[in-house]
Write a protein that binds this DNA or RNA. Structure first.
Length: 572
DNA sequence: GCCGTTTTCGGCCCGACTGTTTTCAGTCG
């Protein structure tokens, strides 16, 4: 069985958890977590590197030891160290470690002194009032543990960026109205435009006497105040989203914004660069000795370590710092560069507006062209078009296009890729279209080899201009189908088939890493809203954000092209 | 456990808040 990078990463993370509970050296624990992250970020299978005899220690954060462990997993399918650790440490303690407020030291104390092996034991001990008797614990700690146990959801939950935005923007807006507040910025993974956020990080600059923290913890959406100090506070909102507020003086805004935007890995890397130059970097500024030498803007902070400002979307420590040093940071795509939308639906299938309404709305967006791409007949629930209905729609769109000024309506179809890789409509009718999007909507759970072969075969059909939402994932609800994306991307590079970055907020498919892989392979992308209604055109921004996280430039995206060039590109 | 333009040993980003203890350890981001 093929070993995926994520399989090994999970084992490294579990080792890190168990070592932490054992009280191992914190830097050793960190090394396993760094190794896990390296594997998750890797754009190709580490198993293939092992098979080819490549040197794994070339990978960042992978030394001789972890390289040997990766080889062990790839060759034997198992990691003996993990098995040994699981015999030494009750695995149930990993969940106990997940309780907020409990770290390795306390988990160890609970285990040794009260025999706590899992969450059930913890609950029993808390209810019996035993925890408060331990040294270093008290009544409040015990009450907090009981509260955590009572309110704990099912594991770690992340919120889709769009959903977070619905809460975050009004909250930020209300803070802007507080007396003495100068700026309010939502930082963290939200600012990096990550597809999901674990919590919200809000940075405020204000006068020293501003009551902003008081107003924050008393906001109507706040359910629970976790902590509240002079310069920071953490709350949980009624919708269970955690929000961290940080207050600094405006002279430190840049340094604080950098610190609070992250990612953690990026920050650590930047601070290390500072150290090498004899500088200390924290959220208050860049310091040479006790003198603050920068901090008002992020650009200043970067300049002090010899770098141009790095866009937030790239701050993941995935090579952006080396690129900044080399002067090769990508000129990231923006929504302004988008000239049209190549994936939309109408009432002919499962959309909510007519082609004319969609086209007029697209014109209002300032776009030059819009492709009407309804489903094909295999998607019965969406009232997909058969060849006859599509032929009629082609005539209808020709007439509409002739009539409308300042917008070109393109004839398209989101044609189903059948289980065997053939298309749902005959080539003869597809040949009449300006473009065809091939997509999978059924048989999502085929085995990897079969699924990959199916998609590659569809890409071989020259009528398929774009492979739409390639992996079929829905964030938080449906896993991507088993697809060898390395081969799909390589095939796209060979055939000239374009890959879609589907901009629906719950799809964002390709994801950021796939965007980066495609870009690096010279594959062209299309950012499509998959709009089923006019207001879905707003999703274009979500798709652009995802593409930016994938280092994508305007030149990588076909719907930045003027119409004439677009047509030439689509003719495979 | 990783890593190296002060290196193969001795470092490893840096600070806020809480609770318990009375000067600070533990946890978190």
């Amino acid at each position: 069985m093929a070993i995926h990078n994520s399989d090994i990463a999970e084992q490294f993370d579990e080792i890190a958890d168990l070592l932490e509970i054992q009280g191992a050296n914190a830097f050793r624990v960190r090394a396993y977590r760094t190794g896990a992250r390296t594997l998750r970020d890797l754009p190709h299978a580490v198993a293939a590197m092992v098979d080819n005899g490549e040197d794994l220690t070339e990978l960042p954060g992978i030394g001789e030891d972890l390289a040997a462990k990766i080889r062990e997993v790839v060759v034997t399918g198992e990691l003996s160290q993990l098995g040994e650790l699981e015999r030494e440490v009750p695995p149930g303690l990993v969940e106990v470690l997940g309780i907020a407020g409990l770290g390795p030291k306390r988990v160890q104390a609970l285990h040794r002194q009260l025999g706590v092996d899992n969450l059930d034991d913890l609950r029993t001990a808390a209810e019996a009032g035993q925890i408060r008797t331990l040294s270093g614990f008290g009544a409040k700690t015990e009450a907090n543990i009981r509260h955590e146990l009572a309110t704990r959801g099912s594991g770690e939950k992340r919120t889709r960026l769009r959903q977070a935005e619905e809460v975050a923007e009004p909250l930020a807006h209300s803070l802007r109205g507080v007396d003495g507040v100068e700026t309010v910025t939502i930082a963290g993974s939200y600012r990096r435009r990550k597809e999901t956020v674990g919590d919200l990080d809000i940075l405020v600059t204000c006068r020293a006497d501003s009551p902003v923290i008081e107003r924050f913890v008393n906001h109507e959406d706040v359910r629970h105040v976790v902590s509240k100090g002079e310069t920071r506070s953490t709350v949980v909102l009624r919708n269970s989203l955690q929000v961290d507020l940080r207050v600094v003086a405006s002279a430190a805004r840049g340094a604080a914004l950098h610190y609070f935007t992250g990612s953690k890995a990026h920050n650590i890397h930047i601070r290390r660069l500072g150290q090498e130059r004899g500088l200390k970097i924290n959220e208050y500024g860049v310091f040479q000795g006790t003198e603050r030498v920068a901090g008002a803007t992020e650009a200043e902070v970067y300049a002090r370590v010899g770098l141009p400002e790095i866009p937030p979307e790239l701050r993941e420590d995935r090579g952006e710092i080396a690129a900044a040093q080399a002067g090769t940071l990508p000129d990231l795509i923006t929504t302004d560069a988008i000239r049209g939308n190549l994936h939309t639906h109408t009432t002919a299938s499962d959309g909510h507006a007519s082609p004319r309404q969609m086209a007029e709305a697209a014109r209002e967006q300032g776009w030059d062209y819009l492709a009407i791409s309804d489903h094909s007949k295999a998607v019965r629930v969406a009232n997909g078009l058969d060849a006859e209905r599509l032929a009629a729609q082609i005539d209808e769109i020709d007439a509409l296009d002739a009539e409308l000024k300042d917008i070109t309506v393109l004839k398209a179809c989101e044609v189903d890729i059948l289980e065997d890789g053939r298309l749902d409509l005959p080539d003869a009718v597809l040949a009449r279209l300006d473009l065809t999007l091939g997509a999978i909507h059924s048989h999502m759970s085929l085995a990897r080899e079969k699924q990959t072969a199916r998609v590659l075969k569809a890409m071989d059909n020259p009528n398929v201009s774009i492979l739409a939402h390639p992996t079929g994932r829905k964030i938080g609800t449906r896993e991507p189908c088993a697809l060898d994306m390395e081969r799909v991307i390589a095939h796209a590079a060979e055939t000239g088939c374009v890959l879609e970055v589907n901009a629906q907020p719950d799809r964002l498919d390709l994801n950021d890493l796939h965007c980066r892989m495609a870009r690096d392979a010279g594959v062209r992308l299309a950012i499509g809203t998959d709009a089923h209604a006019k207001h879905h055109f707003a999703f274009m921004r979500d798709g652009v954000d995802q593409a930016r996280r994938g280092w994508v430039t305007p030149a990588d995206v076909i719907n930045t092209l003027p119409l004439g060039e677009l047509r030439r590109t689509l003719a495979r």
